[in-house]
Each structure stands twice: as structure tokens, then as C-alpha cells.
Amino acid sequence: MSVGLPAAGQRRRLALSGVRGSVAKGRDFTRQALRDWGWDGTETTEDTLLLVSELLTNASLHADGCHELVLTAGQVLRIEVYDGTTTLPRRDPAPRRGVPGGHGLHIVERLSDRWGTDVHADGKAVWAEIEIARLVSGRPTGR
């Protein structure tokens, strides 16, 4: 497979309502999509998997669970995690070093090019975007 953009607007969805181990399943799903699209084996791939983990974990801990993970490839890779609450995520203004909790949205902000929230009738989607150029030209992880 050649490295580059997959078919414009290609989208993959993973239903996660009531699924045990949703974070691990979401990471595996994302890893396979990145591999299929020729975007695996770089530092940005690892950043992407961490983003997915953080978004899914936040939905599990703070939003009554994940309903769905959606990956959309276009000019950016868009990662969306849908949950069932309209409560917006709140970034901890001063997470403490070495203490668990409060770091998730800081990690999302640092690793993504953009992130945000879209509220809809049944809840919300918290999303993060990564520029395709980062996935295509990222440094190899040495695997």
C-alpha cells in the first residue's frame, strides 16, 4: 500500500455502547485503520493512539461511557468520541505533576492540531484532529 491520503472522506465507525474494554478496543480499531491507510509506524501514530485512549477514557470516566468512535480521513484525521451526556469537558486548570487525573485534556490539546466538542440531541462528540502531513512525514518509531 502506498503512503498518503486514503480515499477522500473515508470513515470508520466502532460502536462502543456497553462494550467492556472500550479503550483497548478503540486503540486496536484505530491502529488497524492507520495501518490500512499507510500511516503506521511513526511517532505521530503513537500520538494518535494516545489521543484515542485519552478521549475514550474521558468519556468512560466523565460522560457515562463511550457510545461510538469515528475516524474520518480527509485533509485531516478526525477522531470523534460520542457519549450520552451534553456536559462539556472541562480542562483542569492546574493538574498536579505525578498525581493521576486531570491531565487528559492537556494531553489532547498538546498532541492534536485542534480539538473541540459538538453537542447534539443525544449527547456530544469530543473530537481531535491531526494534520495528514504529520501522519505521512512523522519520524519512525524504530519498530
Score class of each variant (00 low, 15 high):
1 M>Q: 13
2 S>P: 08
6 P>I: 04
9 G>E: 10
9 G>N: 12
10 Q>G: 09
12 R>I: 06
13 R>P: 04
13 R>S: 08
15 A>M: 02
16 L>F: 01
18 G>M: 00
18 G>I: 00
19 V>W: 01
20 R>H: 11
20 R>P: 07
22 S>H: 03
23 V>C: 06
26 G>Q: 02
26 G>A: 04
28 D>V: 02
28 D>C: 07
29 F>Y: 09
29 F>R: 07
30 T>Q: 01
30 T>L: 01
31 R>C: 05
32 Q>Y: 12
32 Q>W: 15
34 L>G: 02
35 R>Y: 14
35 R>Q: 15
35 R>N: 09
36 D>W: 07
36 D>R: 09
37 W>P: 02
38 G>S: 10
39 W>F: 14
39 W>N: 03
41 G>S: 09
42 T>F: 07
43 E>F: 14
44 T>E: 12
45 T>V: 09
46 E>S: 11
47 D>E: 15
47 D>F: 10
47 D>P: 09
48 T>Q: 04
50 L>T: 15
50 L>Y: 12
51 L>N: 05
51 L>T: 03
52 V>C: 06
52 V>A: 04
53 S>P: 04
54 E>V: 04
56 L>D: 01
60 S>N: 11
62 H>P: 10
64 D>W: 00
64 D>G: 14
64 D>V: 01
65 G>N: 00
67 H>W: 03
67 H>R: 00
67 H>A: 00
68 E>V: 04
69 L>Y: 00
69 L>D: 04
69 L>W: 02
70 V>I: 14
73 A>G: 12
75 Q>M: 08
76 V>W: 12
77 L>I: 09
78 R>V: 03
78 R>M: 09
78 R>N: 05
79 I>Y: 03
80 E>F: 06
82 Y>N: 02
83 D>T: 01
83 D>L: 00
83 D>W: 00
83 D>V: 00
85 T>Y: 03
85 T>L: 07
87 T>F: 00
87 T>P: 02
88 L>N: 11
88 L>S: 13
89 P>I: 07
90 R>Y: 12
92 D>Y: 11
93 P>E: 08
94 A>T: 14
95 P>T: 10
96 R>D: 10
97 R>I: 15
98 G>L: 10
98 G>W: 12
99 V>N: 11
99 V>Y: 13
99 V>F: 10
101 G>N: 14
101 G>A: 14
101 G>R: 14
102 G>M: 08
102 G>P: 08
102 G>N: 08
103 H>T: 12
103 H>F: 13
104 G>T: 05
106 H>D: 10
107 I>T: 15
107 I>R: 03
109 E>R: 11
111 L>Q: 08
112 S>H: 06
114 R>V: 06
115 W>C: 01
117 T>N: 06
117 T>V: 15
117 T>S: 05
118 D>V: 05
118 D>Y: 02
120 H>W: 06
120 H>M: 06
121 A>T: 10
122 D>N: 12
122 D>G: 05
123 G>A: 08
123 G>D: 05
123 G>H: 04
125 A>D: 05
126 V>N: 00
126 V>W: 01
128 A>G: 05
128 A>V: 03
128 A>I: 00
129 E>F: 06
129 E>D: 15
130 I>R: 03
130 I>C: 02
131 E>S: 11
131 E>D: 14
134 R>M: 04
134 R>F: 03
134 R>D: 05
136 V>H: 11
136 V>E: 14
137 S>F: 15
137 S>G: 14
139 R>L: 15
142 G>M: 11
143 R>Q: 12
143 R>D: 12
